[in-house]
Each structure stands twice: as C-alpha cells, then as structure tokens.
Design a protein around this nucleic acid. Structure first.
Lengths: 223, 223
DNA sequence: GTCTATAGAATGATAGAC
DNA sequence: GTCTATCATTCTATAGAC
C-alpha cells in the first residue's frame, strides 16, 4: 500500500460526503465523482462499500481509543496504580465527547463523520463496535482497582450508564437543543463532560462522593 | 381502509422479517414473498418502502407513548397534581424498557422490531423520532411541577440522561451482557428500571434523595 | 377500489482490456 | 493500478385486468 493517491482521494471524499449527507444518501458514484477517480477503483482498493465505511470508522476510532487509554494510564500513574473514579470516567467519555461535540465552526470532517456513524449505526460500523468489548474491559479493571468495595455488577452498570450518557448526548444533541430551546449549551464540551462524570460517579458511589485515600497498589488485573 | 387482508399481511410479514433480520437485509421482495402478495401491493398500500417502515414504527410508538402518558397522569393525580420525580421518570422509561427487554421467550415480534428500530435507526424512523419533542415537553412540565426549585436546564439534562440510559440499555443489551459475562441480568426488567430511575433521580436532586411533601397544586403547564 | 404484470432507473459489484 | 463495459439486484412507477 504505497503512496496511493487514488486510495487517499477516495477516503477523503467518502468521509466528507458521508459526514455531510449520511450513509444512506451517498452512492459510490457520488464518491468517485467527488474524488475524481473511476467507479471500479473503490472495489479494487477496498473490496466493497461496506469495507470502505469500515476503514473510515476504524481509523477514527482507534485514535479515540488510544486517547482514552493514554488518559487512563496517566490517571493511574498519578495515583500510584489506582486512579480516582472520576478520572477514569473522564478518560472514558472525554475523548469521545471532545471529538464529536464543540462549536460548529471547529467541527472537523472527522468529527462530523463520527457523529454520523453514531447516529446511523450502519452494519459495518456495528460489527466494529461489537469488537470493542476488550477495550472496555481495561476500564472495568481500572474501576475495580479504584472502587474495590463496589460489587462487580455495579461497576458494569456504571460504565454502561456513563457510555449511555456520552453517546446519547452525541446522537441526540440536536433534539436536546430543540427540546431545551437552546438552554442546554452543547458547545460547552467541558461542562458536559463534567456533568456526565458527576452523574456516573453518583451512580457508582450511591450519591456520596466519597474520596478514599489511595491504598496499597492492586496489581492483579482481574478477569 | 376496510378489511384489508393484503395490507395486514404485508404489515405482519414486514414486522416479522425486519425484527428477525434487520432493515438492511430485508427487501420488499422478501416481504411480499412471505406475505403471499404481489410486489406492487406494497407501493399501492404504503407508497414506498420507507413509508411502510414508518407505519410499522408509528403504530408501536404511539402505543408506548400512550402508556407513558397514562402512567404520568396516574402519578400526578395520585399526588394531587404534583407527582414524585421518581414516578415521573418511571413513567418515562418504564413502558419503553418493558416493551423491549425481558425474557427471550416472551419477546414478541413487536418488541424485537422496536429493538431493531432502536439499533439501526433508519431514516424514516429518525424522522418520526424527531417529532417526539412535543411528547417529551409534557414530561418536562411534570418535572418542573415536581421539582420547582431545580433550574430548568438541570431538568432537561435529567430527562436527557434518563432517556440515554434507557435507550442505550436497549441498544447495547447484548454488549453489556457480554462485557459483564452475563452478570448483569437483562431479563430483570423491573430491576433495570429501578436502577435507571435511581440514577436519574440522583442526577436531578444532586445525590440527596430529598422527598418533599406535596405542596400546593401548580396548575399551569409551563411553556 | 384492489391487485397483477411488467417496465424503468439506479445501485453495488465484477470481468477483462489496457 | 486503472478504466470501460456490463451484470444482477433493488426500489419505484404505470398500464391494465379483475
């Protein structure tokens, strides 16, 4: 896969068109026209329309996952192997939210594409998301170290709810803005992250924001 | 629209096929074959494939919305015009969750169809969901009566997060079951509802489950 | 009014020339 | 590695039988 100008042009054109008009309304012919290449080039380079979409999505999502793990690692190192629960949750939902929300002007093509992927949830993207479980287990492990007294089931539900709020905010940002008549500021990404983290911490700790001093390091990665 | 055997057969076959195999994998030809009718009958009775999907979805979703409003009304009457916040939230997420989750054996075709609609989120269904805002305003109004001291923005976020947890649980139930290795019991619908309501109440009341005595009736439906 | 048979337009995929 | 030409399948539209 050396400097493929055609391949790159297809990827760029596809991401932009999908971001602007959604997966359902964009045909391969639209993409090749925008990229200035031949129709058959898509199948040659990617195999199928679905695989083109999959490639676009994995590229963006491994970047987000790496960011998440970096933040998680930093939080755990700072806490001597055991991160505060809010830092863990911030590492989980922060990169995704920062990547998708924010002032309209600054929304990159990549961001709009990921929003679209979150909303439309087309088959190739669902298949990739289903392989995300291993990635999430690392956060469960960190949560277990952070809240060793909490039952395991509660940890899973807490993680699940945190992701629920983050993804639903991305998916339904327009509806929330309309429902609230603009009163919910969806450009205040930092505020949204703190709101979601705060609720998730409450869900996990039962309302009392108990702050425990870092105890001895728990090295074993459970599971 | 008198006793349309053909029309009914199409609806039943379409709902079953979509529930089983998803919107992307089922063609109109599959549907008419299962229903034992002619291809053109779909366009005659519904106009297009999208309108057929829309009709299936609105039928099920007005049923859910009516159930929601009935529960809300009962809760407000019981409280003399002002319902407890947990009852309001239970009326919001209960019908949806009861309709979609539960023991596999008892999952009706309608339930599986609604899960599919929630996961795949195809254009005609998105269009209908976007008109759901007026329905949600009734819940915001009830929440305002229940928590008059809470800022309006917090109410919107609370409602938003409650819906987030409910819908995400439906959408990602399989992933949660896999992540938790079956430890999160997704057949315990009542337990899930209480979990979501509890977290939503905490999100709205700041962690302290304050229970205020019903004050004087607030009749005006704000907004 | 209700339904059938059939044709049309558009799409994703592929075979083979260059 | 790229392109032209073509295929099978899909949704949609219409003319006409019952």
């Amino acid at each position: 896969m050396p400097s493929d100008q055609t391949r790159t042009a297809i990827l760029a054109a596809a991401e932009r068109l999908y971001a602007d008009r959604g997966f359902g309304d964009v045909t391969l012919r639209d993409i090749v026209a925008a990229a200035g290449v031949n129709l058959a080039a898509v199948n040659y380079h990617f195999g199928s329309k679905d695989e083109l979409i999959a490639e676009l999505f994995v590229t963006r999502s491994i970047a987000t996952n790496r960011e998440r793990l970096n933040e998680l690692k930093a939080a755990e190192e700072k806490g001597g192997g055991r991160a505060d629960i809010d830092a863990i949750l911030r590492a989980l939902v922060g990169p995704t939210l920062r990547g998708c929300l924010g002032p309209d002007r600054e929304r990159s093509t990549a961001a709009r594409f990921m929003i679209r992927a979150s909303i439309e949830s087309v088959p190739p993207i669902r298949r990739i998301k289903n392989r995300e479980v291993d990635h999430l287990r690392k956060f469960v492990a960190a949560m277990r170290r952070s809240l060793p007294d909490r039952g395991e089931v509660d940890l899973y539900w807490g993680l699940h709810f945190a992701l629920a709020m983050a993804h639903h905010t991305i998916r339904e940002s327009e509806r929330l803005a309309r429902l609230s008549d603009g009163k919910c500021d969806l450009n205040d990404v930092a505020g949204i992250i703190e709101r979601i983290v705060a609720v998730s911490v409450m869900a996990l700790t039962g309302g009392a924001a108990e702050k425990k001093p870092a105890a001895k390091l728990v090295a074993r990665d459970a599971r």
